[in-house]
Write a protein that binds this DNA or RNA. Sequence first.
DNA 1: CATGGGATTGACT
DNA 2: GTCAATCCCATGC
Length: 202
Amino acid sequence: MALPAEFYARPVLDVARDLVGCTLAHGRTAGVIVETEAYHQSEPACHAHIGVTARTHVLFRAPGTAYVYRSYGIHALLNVVCEPEGIGAAVLIRALEPTAGVDTMRERRGLPATDQLCSGPGKLTQALAIGLDLNETDVVSGPIRLGPRPAGWEGPPQVVAGTRIGITKAPELEWRFCAVASRCVSRPWPRGLGPGSKSTAH
DNA sequence: CATGGGATTGACT
DNA sequence: GTCAATCCCATGC
């Protein structure tokens, strides 16, 4: 049972928030999404901001298309294209809580603790064996599968918003969404302050 | 055609 | 805390 294409044909911020708590699977490995970030052509941190190129054309394709690209020459990062076709927008999957195929993940990752198997965008693609070959595949009916929350995750998960990580452009946008209780997120909130804190003691 | 940067990670000081 | 690895691609000459 997969999330329908219509799920992704909505504002990218809504999709990013709603994907937290959903299931991501590839092969026999799977996990629950605990961290996402939204990207939209209207802001400069998004690859689609520069327009349609050989690299970015995928972002303008139909909602529910996977956009997998290489980061820092090393890591594959997984995104899901959102909004109507022709709009360049996507949700970056940043972290999972492993639920299936954990032993396989451990082998691929080299025996780290379970909490760290998928606690980062480059880690989870390695753990689930998601490579650049899956770029432009369909997450509704293709090899990468996205489904609703599994049993045990009923009820809306408590999701908190914060600023995106590792970017230099538009760093002020609070377009990162995390499951609040998870220990599998890629990075804790700075200085132990709650998400969305705009001012420090001053 | 040459160059520089990047939505990261892991190892090291 | 710092830093190198490594490669695709956008940009500029």
